[in-house]
Design a protein around this nucleic acid. Sequence first.
DNA 1: TATAAGTGTGGAGTGCAGTCCATGGTCAAG
DNA 2: CTTGACCATGGACTGCACTCCACACTTATA
Lengths: 131, 131
Amino acid sequence: MLISEFAKATGLPVDTIRFYIAKGLLKPNRSLKGGSNPYQLFKPEDVTAARMIRLQQTLGYTLGEILALNEEYRAGEHSSERTIEVLQLQIERLQQRKGALDAALTFLHGKVDWIKSGKPGSAPRLEDYQC
Amino acid sequence: MLISEFAKATGLPVDTIRFYIAKGLLKPNRSLKGGSNPYQLFKPEDVTAARMIRLQQTLGYTLGEILALNEEYRAGEHSSERTIEVLQLQIERLQQRKGALDAALTFLHGKVDWIKSGKPGSAPRLEDYQC
DNA sequence: TATAAGTGTGGAGTGCAGTCCATGGTCAAG
DNA sequence: CTTGACCATGGACTGCACTCCACACTTATA
């Protein structure tokens, strides 16, 4: 598919897509169309790749990190051990984030409960939920 | 405490602290020291506030959003109902983030399992874990 | 009392992640 | 064959979150 269709499929602005291509995050191939500026052709997998990028972004990764992760992933694509290693690493990092998130949620819930029960003693302290 | 001590206590660079003050995220009071440019005095609560800011940042909030949240929180400080409302709203937003995180983790775990079991059938699809 | 270390203000600069625009080539419909 | 929609490239611009000065003043130390 061409870039405008790809934009519709991913929900990303065309400019952002081109920006990702320039960064090396997406690698469409060139079509025969376009003469001297050959048009870029996207495959359905590219849509998944774009979705993955956005997901990783919401998880706090920078585009540079995402690029590195994806390249490392691609590099070990033919070694199951290496792939698992890379995935496991990502899992660990996400679990750390999840830890911080859970701590924050516990803290907030604790605060709500504390208020609901008439604020007995001292307020829940952020420090008590190591994050 | 003065700014350098506050910097040590929070682990933040002095410049960043001043930046947060300029944004209105921290509001130290002025001391008698410093003559014509009175020095800024930080309270222990300010350390907690700084920790809260960093936490909220890791959870994906911008400084603008953090400021708004904290001001709204302060605004309703004397109404338990309003405070609970604000906290509940934060909890909801965090739970949404947690959902995305869990989806990503499930996806990654699924992929690891799929590889470990010799890649039967087709690879786990990101699309199947709505995020 | 000299001098180093700490503090405040204002402004410039940086890196990231886009976003916008001008220019020019290409394609499809009429 | 013209016109409008689509595509590529390059460069300028923006907003965010810092980060780094230069300069002036104050305080602590030798």
